[in-house]
Amino acid sequence: MSTNYSGNYMSFILESDGKTWGGGPVIVVNMGANTVTLDGVKIINPTITATSMSWLASSGNSSSASVSFYVNSGNNGFFGKIAEGGADLPSTSNFSGISSAAPDDLSVWNGTYNAFQKNGSKWTSDGTVVISSPNVSYNGKDIGNYVYQGTSGTANLDQLSWFMSGGNAQNVIIEFAKDSSGYLTFFGDNWVNGDQPSENNFTGTTKATPEPPTITVVVAIAISSSTTETTEVTEVTEVTEVTEVTEVTEVTEVTEVTEVVEVVEVEVVEVIIAETEQNAPVKKPAASESVNADADAAAASKLSRKPSNS
């Protein structure tokens, strides 16, 4: 029986340096309805099979993609390629997604967050986000059809998102964390028109403060892929029939079927909250290609002191 890969997926996109995985869009797959949404926007004419998913920019989409589904440790995922606009798909995989429940219940993040949004080069107060699980509100308006998901490893990553297609006034993707003083914080993107911002522009803290939280959040994620080869050989059957003068021997053809399956490991290695200059950009969480937890944590620590341009 084939696996049902329907679900919500956190995604990661390999950046141009070939090493850093940055946060990507939220993908929602419904195999029964043959639909895919990307950050709440319905993909036009997607192709979904029992093991893969693809779409084309030439169909009127903002990107092209081709991925294969997999199951690892009980969680569905995909791995493949994506290209923005009318660009050709890259020669190597640059797109990864995982569908798994958030490791922490949403109630862990209950609180009233003083929100701030970046306009140009300045952070300005943007009201409040209130989490009172299972309810979420933003500036007094209830949020509908939100998606709460995440992934884990030696650290947890919990993501909350909602979109205009769900009846909301804006598109938002945020991740939660605690700062060094124990205050709850979030960081992410808030937009209405166009594509998801390339740099985080939305943040908040439960600390009572008239100023935006001066934090940089660095998330080190280990993503690795491997292939397994499964070979099935049909049984060789020899049927011999002997008549009085004739011997007939029939041998079935030997058929070898080899299936190559790509398995992807996605593990959160470290979530670091670090102080940075006020009004400095809050960088998107970066994911390391390495699977060395110590090295990833060290790299994340270095990034937190000097944010990258990724």
Rank of each mutant, 00 (worst) to 15 (best):
T231Q: 07
D104E: 07
V136E: 01
S301G: 09
N168K: 14
E235D: 14
E84S: 15
L160P: 02
V129G: 04
K284E: 07
I44R: 01
D179N: 14
L303P: 05
T234V: 13
D195Q: 15
G188V: 00
G74F: 06
D294G: 08
I272K: 04
L157H: 04
E289W: 13
N8I: 13
A297V: 07
N201I: 08
T37I: 06
S310C: 12
S224R: 13
P46V: 05
S96W: 15
I43D: 00
K302F: 08
N279H: 14
L89Y: 00
V130N: 03
E277Y: 06
K178L: 07
G144T: 14
G74Q: 06
M10T: 01
S165T: 09
F95H: 01
V28G: 00
A50T: 03
S133V: 12
S290Y: 05
S288M: 11
N139M: 11
I173F: 06
G77P: 05
K122L: 11
Q117C: 09
A293I: 15
G7Y: 01
F69Q: 00
E235Y: 09
T37C: 03
K302P: 05
S6W: 08
Y148C: 04
T230V: 12
V251P: 09
A83W: 01
S64F: 00
W109F: 06
G204T: 03
E256W: 06
G80I: 02
K118G: 02
A87F: 05
S137Y: 08
T35V: 03
F116W: 09
G7A: 03
T128K: 13
V248N: 15
E270I: 01
L14N: 00
D189Y: 08
N110L: 03
N190V: 09
D126A: 15
L303H: 07
T276G: 12
E256K: 13
S54Q: 04
L303E: 10
I173Q: 10
Y148T: 05
I173S: 11
T151E: 01
G204P: 02
K302Y: 08
V71S: 12
E289G: 15
A57I: 05
Q159V: 08
Y183K: 08
T51W: 00
G18M: 11
T246C: 07
N76H: 08
K207Y: 11
S226Y: 13
I223C: 06
D294T: 14
F176T: 00
S137H: 07
V129D: 06
V233D: 15
T237E: 14
T47V: 10
V245Y: 12
T92C: 02
G167Q: 07
V236I: 14
Q117W: 09
S16F: 09
